[in-house]
Design a protein around this nucleic acid. Structure first.
Length: 570
RNA sequence: CGGGAUGUAGCGCAGUUUGGCUAGCGCGCCUGCCUUGGGAGCAGGAGGCCGGGGGUUCGAGUCCCUCCAUCCCGACCA
């Protein structure tokens, strides 16, 4: 490709509204342009990267026996009504009407479509297992699209659906995808981790998220520092190690203390001279059905996902001032479990074993001290409802957990029979019995992976593409386009590298060298080949590695092999 | 959806407080000269519904009302 023919409009300054580095660099380097909030044009450089990522995905899906198909973006409402998700999915589902006033949706995912397809075409155990996938645009009307390609309303996703006869088959499919995903992200040159994740309302099935580790990640993950253990989990999921049983002696007498205007744990702790971990934090939550009290140690935070799962409800919200007063009789900041009536009390494991703690008295400006669970109040549910923090012991091996930020680029999920049951996708087993097919779904955000790769690979000058997904392997820069010798040599190199199967940009623009160097750094191809005056006289070609800035002089005749060799390490 | 902010040339911004002639600057773009190893220099030039609509006024980028868009924080979320 010649730079004079390539639409790659670079910008010196990034648009002011681009916050994260991948967004800024994708704009500056001429990969994307915004069309609407969360909707982008992908320019030629971006398309090349996307195609490379897609190709890696295809190869790994096919390796595991996946078959590619293509399903529609435009989907009739009936399918969504049949699965119940027309009502459940909420405002995130793009909805539209056709000229006959019939309802349609733009697919945010394709379970409905594919399950319906399989319902019609698969009848026998002999046709299973099946692994079907597509790479397709997805639409989600995000409340807050942001960070460029990281959280868009239109994005490209690979989604594979597995169909098996039984749980054993699903486990095999699941492991195949786990392996495929590991290979895909490795091949893309990313530093990532599969982590255990919460399966949410869909049920107690197994699920892993593949997280690209980056500071800008929206998700927080905890993983075991010990090399021997590979425990890693989304914080939403990470389990706490059960606290050691404390000997319940030395129980002091419960007593009221005045705590004027002490509403926060910090204030109470300061005022009473009691450590935060010896205070019981009482939070009132409302679900769609009831209000509940949640107790955690003063130095801990409630994990609302765990709470949601414990209660088996659809949503939880912190209760407002009004509800707090109604339930406790006091204002916010003085809630406590002692004497709390008519409300379910859920306590974290650590609270159950706390001794002589402080807690709100359900009276303004009063706290109890020397509160002891069991003796002074009873608990309805004792379970793990708190956030696990950096440095806590690993639930697997006891070593320290470390916290990191991650970008979720893939998720694999055991669906079970949720959709096959709702939509009636069944097969006949060997005994002639009707059974629902067992499903799994497995997604990779293609465009998000591109952004994540930049989050992880950039410097002050621009993007540093891993070679496997770089838009071009190298850029060839004749320093002075007025010098016929230089342009001729650059052209010759361009032709030779193309013949060797390498993808290059020949920067034949009549720009000064500095401009071309800046643009080359910004766009971030792994190698830069500079053809200057010395190249002509010494017949040595300068090859510079984008990531390290290292330059090597290669004898002209060895150029192809040297370039191929360099690329292997990038 | 709640709170905050911003919309002026392709990009980055000034001008708005205190209304006043023809709306500015830097970068980018076009033409010419010059230059050619890290975003050069000189000269000339093109490019604006000042987010939209309504109002106040002799006069609105500037004041008022309204709508829209975008961003940030929060809530929410596969």
């Amino acid at each position: 490709m010649r730079a004079t023919e390539l639409l790659a409009p670079t910008l010196r300054e990034a648009p002011a509204d681009a916050e994260v580095v991948s967004h800024r660099l994708l704009l500056r380097a001429g990969f994307i342009r915004r069309v609407a909030a969360g909707v982008y044009n992908y320019l030629p450089l971006a398309v090349r990267v996307i195609k490379k990522i897609e190709q890696i995905i295809r190869e790994e899906m096919d390796r595991q026996g996946g078959q590619e198909l293509l399903m529609p973006i435009l989907q009739p409402a009936e399918l969504w009504q049949e699965s119940g998700r027309w009502d459940v999915y909420g405002p995130e589902l793009f909805r539209l009407k056709d000229r006959h006033d019939r309802d349609f949706a733009l697919g945010p995912t394709h379970e409905e479509i594919i399950t319906t397809l399989v319902r019609g075409e698969v009848n026998s155990y002999k046709q299973l297992p099946l692994l079907l996938y597509q790479i397709q645009n997805k639409y989600r009307d995000e409340r807050r699209p942001r960070f460029g390609l990281m959280r868009g309303r239109e994005f490209i996703m690979k989604d594979l659906y597995s169909f098996d006869r039984d749980e054993e088959g699903l486990q095999i499919s699941y492991l195949k995808m786990h392996e495929a995903y590991t290979r895909i992200f490795q091949r893309c040159g990313l530093r990532f981790r599969p982590v255990e994740a919460d399966s949410g309302a869909i049920g107690g099935s197994e699920t892993h998220e593949f997280m690209v580790l980056a500071e800008s990640g929206e998700a927080s993950v905890l993983f075991c520092e010990s090399g021997a253990c590979d425990y890693a989990a989304n914080v939403e999921r990470a389990a706490q190690v059960s606290p050691p049983e404390k000997v319940k002696d030395n129980l002091k007498n419960i007593a009221e203390k005045e705590t004027p205007d002490c509403r926060t744990i910090e204030e109470v702790s300061q005022f009473l001279g009691i450590a935060a971990q010896d205070i019981i934090k009482t939070l009132l939550y409302e679900t769609e059905a009831e209000a509940v009290a949640v107790l955690v140690r003063g130095d801990r935070d409630v994990n609302e996902i765990k709470l949601l799962n414990t209660l088996g409800c659809l949503r939880v919200n912190l209760a407002g001032e009004e509800t707090i007063r109604k339930v406790t009789g006091a204002s916010r900041g003085f809630s406590g479990p002692v004497g709390l009536k008519g409300i379910k009390i859920i306590a974290d494991l650590e609270v159950a074993s706390i001794i002589n703690a402080a807690a709100g008295a359900n009276k303004d400006n009063i706290h109890w001290i020397n509160v002891n669970p069991g003796r002074d109040f009873s608990i309805d549910i004792i379970t793990d409802v708190r956030m696990v923090e950096d440095g806590e012991p690993c639930p697997c091996c006891g070593q320290k957990l470390k916290e990191a930020r991650g970008i979720e680029v893939g998720q694999i999920f055991k669906l079970g029979i949720k959709y096959s049951k709702l939509l009636g996708a069944t097969y006949l087993d060997e005994g002639g019995k009707v059974k629902p097919v067992i499903m799994g779904c497995y997604g990779i955000g293609v465009t998000r992976t591109m952004a994540a790769a930049i989050e992880q690979n950039n410097d002050q000058d621009g993007i540093i593409w891993p070679a496997a997904i770089a838009p071009f392997h190298a850029v060839i820069i004749p320093v002075n386009t007025k010098d016929a010798g230089q342009t001729a040599l650059a052209e010759a190199i361009y032709a030779r590298l193309a013949a060797a199967g390498l993808e290059t940009i020949l920067d034949d623009r009549a720009e000064r060298a500095g401009v071309k160097f800046k643009d080359a750094d910004l766009i971030g191809c792994p190698l830069r080949i500079t053809v200057g005056a010395k190249a002509l006289t010494e017949r040595q070609i300068e090859v510079r590695v984008r990531r390290t800035g290292e330059t090597t002089m290669i004898p002209e005749e060895k150029l192809e092999s040297a370039v191929l060799e360099l690329l292997k390490e990038l």
